[in-house]
Simulated scan of single mutants.
Amino acid sequence: MNQFHQVQNDIVQQVRGLINREINGQSTSDLHRQATRDLESAVAAWHSSYCRLIKFQRDFIRSLHGWFKLTLVSVNTEPINGNREFSDSFMFCDEWKLALDRIPDTVASEAIKSFINVVHSIYVKQTEELKIKKRTESASKELEKKASSVRSIERKYYNSYSMVGIGLPDVGPDNGNVLDARDPLAEKKAELAASQRRVEDEMVKHSKAVEVTRAMTLNNIQTGLPGVFQAMTSFSSLMTEALEAVCTRSYSIK
């Protein structure tokens, strides 16, 4: 286990050198967000498995230690019937129990739990970005709907004048593109212009949200992920040393 965590730690340290080189980053999709949610669930399951592993190992050796103490060893720890084998076995079990009790497993547990929070914060930021994206798309559709309506009304309005041979009101070289107050489309065109500004505002917000999400994701991964594997490498190293010492002690039991 320790060897694998050392390799993982060496690989993960390389994320510190990652740089966001994309000026216009790719926006978050539903697939991206689901992948982040899956990662959060996987890390949470990892944390749960880690805690259960430590608990089950300690529960096992404590039960075995208690069985030895109550069944094979008297209150004053003298071997029953003078059998030294039971005493050696109990001492081995006692050292095994102490070794597991002394291992600092909390640091690794907290590191994994902290990374769960890191991934969750990325998920929340992606969700916010997607909401802005959907607002932008909705505003764009509304703009297109209003633009289509204005074009349709314009065609009917201009055609009605041309059919009776009447010139359009206040349309001439002096007026250019200025809307006349008597223009029946003035209100519609004002609404269209407002919709256009709203779409532009939402597009700016979405572009900014993409940048923020991407920067936060990279920063959180760079600061959060290496710490997890550093803690796991340290924990597994201490676990290996403790169990090797216990195993060495077991070789002396005959």
Rank of each mutant, 00 (worst) to 15 (best):
residue 234 S to P: 00
residue 102 R to H: 09
residue 19 I to S: 10
residue 120 H to C: 00
residue 178 V to H: 15
residue 229 F to A: 06
residue 218 L to A: 03
residue 188 K to R: 08
residue 103 I to G: 00
residue 67 W to D: 10
residue 69 K to M: 04
residue 145 K to T: 11
residue 251 Y to K: 13
residue 217 T to F: 05
residue 233 T to K: 06
residue 232 M to P: 00
residue 20 N to A: 06
residue 42 A to D: 11
residue 163 M to E: 15
residue 165 G to R: 13
residue 211 E to L: 10
residue 65 H to C: 04
residue 202 E to Y: 10
residue 134 K to Q: 12
residue 56 F to V: 02
residue 8 Q to K: 15
residue 25 G to W: 01
residue 147 A to Y: 00
residue 164 V to P: 03
residue 113 K to I: 02
residue 89 S to V: 03
residue 68 F to G: 02
residue 78 E to I: 02
residue 222 Q to P: 08
residue 193 A to I: 04
residue 97 K to L: 15
residue 127 T to S: 10
residue 17 G to D: 15
residue 162 S to H: 13
residue 50 Y to N: 01
residue 39 L to Y: 12
residue 161 Y to N: 05
residue 7 V to T: 14
residue 57 Q to Y: 04
residue 136 T to L: 15
residue 249 R to C: 03
residue 75 V to Y: 11
residue 252 S to D: 09
residue 154 E to M: 14
residue 138 S to T: 07
residue 93 C to F: 00
residue 32 H to T: 06
residue 151 R to P: 02
residue 18 L to W: 15
residue 86 F to K: 02
residue 237 S to W: 06
residue 36 T to W: 07
residue 214 R to W: 01
residue 84 R to H: 09
residue 67 W to S: 11
residue 27 S to N: 05
residue 8 Q to D: 13
residue 47 H to M: 07
residue 165 G to Y: 12
residue 167 G to S: 13
residue 129 E to Q: 07
residue 48 S to F: 07
residue 8 Q to G: 11
residue 66 G to I: 09
residue 220 N to L: 06
residue 37 R to E: 08
residue 159 N to E: 14
residue 213 T to K: 02
residue 64 L to T: 14
residue 74 S to C: 01
residue 146 K to R: 12
residue 91 M to F: 07
residue 120 H to T: 01
residue 16 R to F: 03
residue 156 K to G: 04
residue 134 K to E: 10
residue 3 Q to K: 15
